[in-house]
Simulated scan of single mutants.
Amino acid sequence: MSHKVLVLYYSKHGATRAMANKIALGVEQQGLEACLRTVPEMSTNIGDAQEPVPTSGDPFVSHQDIQDCAGIALGSPTRFGNMAAPLKHFIDSTSALWLSGVLENKPACVFTSTSSMHGGQESTLLSMALPLLHHGMLFCGLPYSIPQLHTTLTGGSPYGVTHLAQGKYPNKLSEDEVVLCIEQGKRLATLVNKLRD
């Protein structure tokens, strides 16, 4: 079984990418390799071609990345209470992987960021969880045994870690959010290790 955990995200302004990096840190603290991947922007203009590789940042995800992983952390900013279109577009392309059952019994978690306190964080997390459940994955939330889930005044949810992107530095994670992201990655990696054993 693979030792790689895929941390797959879409980030428009950098907040979701910051979360992905902290989740990856938590994965690696449990002795697994975190594989950070993103998805390309979508264009509504016919004829606008996307670059085959990003000009900077993490590489674009491939179906092979999904086949090779032992677990997935899936993240997106909130768009009207749902995941962003670029991530949904990629997920919609995974039907062949669904037919093969390659993700069955692998753990997965979700994460999101919004610019308002009640901007649809939990509905976005649930929207991302649904295709993972259809793939037969095992959903991994955040338990309330993590103290920061009780004390956070910004992001945090038992369905998955969240971030509230407000203030002078909207992409800067709060101390509680950093801890929750790392704990999310650690919990995902712990489940991967237990299932592997």
Rank of each mutant, 00 (worst) to 15 (best):
E177V: 03
L126G: 06
R187F: 06
F60V: 00
Y169F: 10
P143Y: 06
G26E: 04
D58R: 08
A73G: 10
P59S: 05
P107F: 08
H63A: 09
V53Y: 00
L6T: 08
V7D: 14
T162V: 07
A165K: 02
G81D: 03
A96Q: 14
S115E: 07
T162M: 03
Q121P: 06
A84N: 09
M19S: 08
Q67R: 15
S95F: 10
D65E: 08
D176Q: 06
A70E: 06
A18L: 05
G156L: 04
M42A: 13
W98I: 10
S116Q: 04
S93I: 00
E122L: 09
L130R: 12
L142K: 03
C35H: 14
A129H: 05
G120I: 10
Y10F: 09
S56K: 15
P86T: 05
K186H: 06
L188Y: 06
Y10K: 00
V102A: 08
P59H: 03
Q29A: 09
S95P: 04
T154Q: 11
R17G: 10
A70Q: 04
K194D: 15
G136L: 08
E177C: 07
L173W: 08
A165Y: 03
L99V: 13
Q30W: 03
A24F: 00
G101A: 02
V178H: 09
C140Y: 06
V39Y: 04
A189V: 05
C35Y: 12
I23Y: 03
L153T: 13
G185P: 01
Q50P: 00
V102F: 00
P143G: 08
D58Q: 11
S76T: 12
S145Q: 13
S100L: 09
L74R: 05
V53F: 00
C69I: 06
S62Y: 00
D197N: 11
V110T: 07
Q67K: 15
M137V: 13
F139L: 11
T152W: 01
G31S: 10
M117K: 15
R196A: 14
K186P: 01
A49F: 01
T151M: 05
G14Y: 03
Y9M: 08
R17T: 04
L125E: 04
N82C: 12
Q166A: 05
C35D: 15
E122K: 04
A34S: 13
F111D: 03
E28F: 01
G155V: 12
L138F: 13
Q148T: 12
A34G: 09
S2R: 10
A34V: 01
R196Q: 15
P40M: 11
P40A: 10
M83E: 01
